[in-house]
Amino acid sequence: MLAAADEFAAIFTRWRVWFLMANQDISLRYRRSLLGPFWISLAMASLIIGLGLLYSQIFHQPFKEYVSFIAAGLVAWTLLSGLLLESCNVVMESDGHLRALPLPLSLFAARMVFRNLIIFGHNLLVVVLMLFIFQHRISPLIVLALPGLAIMLLFGFGVALILGPLSARFRDIPQVMASFVQLAFFLTPIFWRASQLKASNPVVVLNPLFHFVELIRQPLLGHVPTLLNWGVALAVTAVSLALALVVQAYTRRKLFLWL
């Protein structure tokens, strides 16, 4: 357990490794394209406008208000789902490195988290711009999204250290996860509102992903997340980090065999 905690600490002592890797990941993905990483922003903008136009009609919602809601929700969801999906690949996408060098896995988890944070930054640009266009003002409460963001990133880090090694051992976990995230997208109130269901509906209250999304979405829309949102997100994150430590302690010495 101590050795596993030691590996966690590598993200501070060797931060440049994950920092460089994540930056290269992004620049590699968008190399030689005209807009570069701003393709991320453009894709997000078209998704928000498209969904906004369609669902504001289906749900009979005022367009401006609905599009802001969907923009704030999607940017949070994109980060969360990116973290969950890419968690499964942190070991497999770096198997060459892990086979040849004794690098702590935490560095690869941090690289994945940071890569998603860069994408989030590009998306946020669009969302803030849209909020400004459609709401004509940005509430100072928006800074409350920062602690929410930090919690989500920590959660992603924990999940990566759990699912990364397990996916290397059991190669069907990424598939299971992909189906799960897709289902979760429909079950989590992103393009529909939690208030459209009864307040105590378990699909909303017992869905930890909803609480994570709220931590970022509500501040963007100028509201304060509820205590329940904070409580659930913090508890789930704490559990994921504790579990990550256990998985690390158990798989650290065996990981090499699974590559």
């Binding site: 490794v17 460089l20 290269q24 590699l28 490195h97 086979r99 040849a100 060098l101 690098l103």
Partner: peptide, 23 residues
């Protein structure tokens, strides 16, 4: 053990100095 680990073929030689050594 492995040749050229951390070298990114898209980057210049100059930009490829840091990461392999950090590894």
């Amino acid at each position: 053990i492995d040749k050229g680990l951390g070298i990114n073929p898209e980057l210049s030689g100059e930009a490829n100095i840091e990461l392999p050594l950090r590894f």
